[in-house]
Write a protein that binds this DNA or RNA. Sequence first.
DNA 1: ATAATTGCAAAAGCTTTGCATGGCC
DNA 2: GGCCATGCAAAGCTTTTGCAATTAT
Lengths: 139, 139
Amino acid sequence: MKEINLVEKVKSKKLKVTPQRVAILEAIYMLDNHPTAENIIQYIGKNYPNIAVGTVYKVLESFVDNGLLNRVKTENDVMRYDPMVENHHHLYCCESDKIENFEDPELDHLIAEHFRKKKIKNFKIKDIKLQITGIFKNK
Amino acid sequence: MKEINLVEKVKSKKLKVTPQRVAILEAIYMLDNHPTAENIIQYIGKNYPNIAVGTVYKVLESFVDNGLLNRVKTENDVMRYDPMVENHHHLYCCESDKIENFEDPELDHLIAEHFRKKKIKNFKIKDIKLQITGIFKNK
DNA sequence: ATAATTGCAAAAGCTTTGCATGGCC
DNA sequence: GGCCATGCAAAGCTTTTGCAATTAT
């Protein structure tokens, strides 16, 4: 992703554009396996040896609050970050820590129709996410 | 749940039956909102003022390893424990920490059929769980 | 100019670990 | 009796917080 787009993304949320924020956002796009804060710190450590851990967490929090990132968490796992903020599901590898995004509008429609016809008692649905666990096959 | 059933549950996994294990298992059944380790420690603290935090974590881990409990984790949350080990989904309240179990075999079948007809490329599905977020309506 | 962001370091929160003691089978 | 579980306390790891210095707008 071009630097200019990263800057625009930060600007678009009315956040101050700092080198740290741009670097962190870039790292998340480069590390495309839903990186942890630790992954991000290591990645940008090459160019920002003195970046503060606290800064990374603060920036990540502000990105989440402003809809630039989503948090992803699983059993037995630390927090991970997902730059895809549009509605989607996740494929979890049960043999590694790989997580991949998954979109299937047809399935979403199927599920929505199901719940339109058969409501859950005493519950108003806002959002449905699938956690699909399995094994990635090598091509 | 009767004490005897709790004892049987522990025995059935070939785990030694100790008062702590029985108390912890009972607590999880009584605290029916997918309790945290902290919730459990507080609950059994009445009868076991000296129960060690480490013990609770060790017992929970062994219960999970032996299929007596499942772990449940969400964004921004600590680990919680679920005594229902059969396949099911979860309803998450977006205004509180309430989590409720949800079963819908018809929906499961619908989704299974969908993926039978339309496989995910390079991925072998082992399990599908729905995270349904919304609001619990008061009756 | 000024309000927000950063770095640093300390602290907090949850969970794990090691080891001696004690309890279950 | 032997082995496993417990209690205790320390440590580990991720994340948060406070504050002074710095930086973006």
